[in-house]
């Protein structure tokens, strides 16, 4: 188990664990830790849009759909406190991670979430 704390937005908003990048997405349908690469062909899921009227993210490369409910309910356990998020990665070791930055689509960066 690896517990990592990273930024919700801006610099350091991407954590790469075992070679796989993750970001924290805030959508109108809920928030979750999002694999930044699409499971289909590795497209930039961090730039995905929410499909109108449906709880799915649409990858910009091949329009592969990913369930938002699945990410929120069965995804990586995490908690956001203000502008930082702490996530627990089950299959990771303390020496196999790094942080960076990835831009988020307007549907994922929290700007559409009214608080």
């Amino acid at each position: 188990m690896l517990v990592l704390t990273f930024a919700v937005s801006g610099a350091g908003n991407c954590v790469e664990v075992g070679g796989a990048p993750f970001v924290y997405a805030r959508t109108t349908l809920g928030s979750f830790v999002l694999p930044a690469r699409c499971s289909h062909r590795g497209g930039p899921l961090h730039l995905a849009r929410v499909e109108p009227g449906r709880a799915r993210l649409i990858c910009p490369w091949h329009e592969q759909a990913t369930s938002v409910k699945r990410l929120a309910r069965t995804g990586i356990p995490a908690v956001r406190r203000g502008e930082v998020v702490t996530a627990v990665f089950a299959d990771a070791t303390p020496d196999n991670w790094s942080t960076g930055h990835l831009p988020l689509s307007p549907d994922l960066d929290g700007t559409s979430v009214s608080v």
Partner: peptide, 9 residues
């Protein structure tokens, strides 16, 4: 608004 828990714990 300040704290939000997600994922499968």
């Amino acid at each position: 608004d300040e704290v939000e828990v997600t994922g499968k714990w």
